Amino acid sequence: MLYALFCISLTTEVYAQTSENNYDAELAAALGADDYGMKSYVLVILVTGDAKITDEKQRNELFRGHFANMSRLAKDNILVVAGPLMKAEPKRGLFILNVSTVEEAEALVKTDPAVQAGIFTYELSALYSSAALMQVGEIHSSIQKLTIE
């Protein structure tokens, strides 16, 4: 049994350290990838806040600001992935931010008008994931037929 565990461990280690033939060093560098094709991000979970804004015009304006802020961060290559969480109340949505620290992410999240108004609060976590996420925005713009305004 111990021998079998040693073989599994050795096999896993060998596979984890092999290089694929299609490795693109230039792309890896451009995306900020480490040797495993990974990089650091910060995951933001937006949570329903305490604010109860019933004025529809004010609420719509805050959400327009929320989406404008997201667009700005995406154009600046900071917002990598975003989307609503479906049927997960009180959790409402997520961002993956291209920043190295939770402190940087928090400063950026605080620029969101919906966060400032208390519609959302947030949870922050360091995330280690594929550097390929950096290409989601570019790919998405090629397949997006309608925009959110």
Rank of each mutant, 00 (worst) to 15 (best):
Y128C: 07
A88N: 04
E104D: 04
N21L: 13
I8Y: 15
Y122Q: 03
R64I: 11
A132F: 10
A126Y: 09
T18Q: 15
S9T: 14
M134F: 05
A131M: 04
R72L: 12
I45T: 06
L94G: 04
M86C: 12
T11F: 14
D35G: 10
A117R: 00
V44I: 02
K87V: 11
A88F: 01
T111E: 07
L127T: 05
L27H: 12
E103Y: 05
R72S: 10
I78E: 04
A68E: 11
E13T: 09
S19K: 14
E89W: 11
L146G: 12
Q58T: 13
L79G: 01
C7M: 12
M70V: 08
M1T: 14
G93K: 00
E104G: 01
D112T: 03
A74W: 09
E138F: 12
S71P: 06
I8S: 15
E138P: 02
I119F: 01
Y41E: 05
L146S: 14
E56T: 15
G93V: 00
A30E: 11
S142E: 10
L97G: 00
E106H: 09
N22L: 09
T121M: 03
T48C: 07
E89I: 13
L46D: 00
T18E: 15
V109C: 01
N98K: 05
N77W: 08
Q116A: 08
I96E: 01
D35E: 13
A33C: 03
A28W: 05
L94Q: 07
K87H: 13
L27Q: 11
A105C: 06
G65K: 04
V115Q: 03
Y122S: 04
R59H: 07
A107G: 08
A126L: 13
C7R: 11
I148P: 11
L124Q: 06
K145V: 13
I45R: 01
L10T: 11
T101A: 00
F6N: 12
E103N: 01
A33L: 10
I8R: 14
N22K: 14
V44S: 01
Y15D: 10
L46K: 02
L124P: 00
K110W: 06
Y122A: 03
L10W: 13
V102N: 06
L73M: 07
K110F: 03
G137D: 02
N60Y: 10
S100N: 15
T121C: 02
E20G: 14
G49Y: 07
A74P: 07
I96G: 01
N22G: 05
Y3N: 11
F67C: 02
L127M: 12
G49L: 10
V115K: 00
E149D: 12
T18L: 14
S142Q: 13
N60L: 14
V14I: 15
E123P: 01
K145S: 05
A126C: 08
D24W: 06
S19R: 15
A105G: 02
Y128L: 07
Q135D: 08
T48R: 13
L5F: 08
V80W: 00
K87F: 10
Y41S: 00
A29W: 08
E26Y: 04
A74D: 09
A29Y: 09
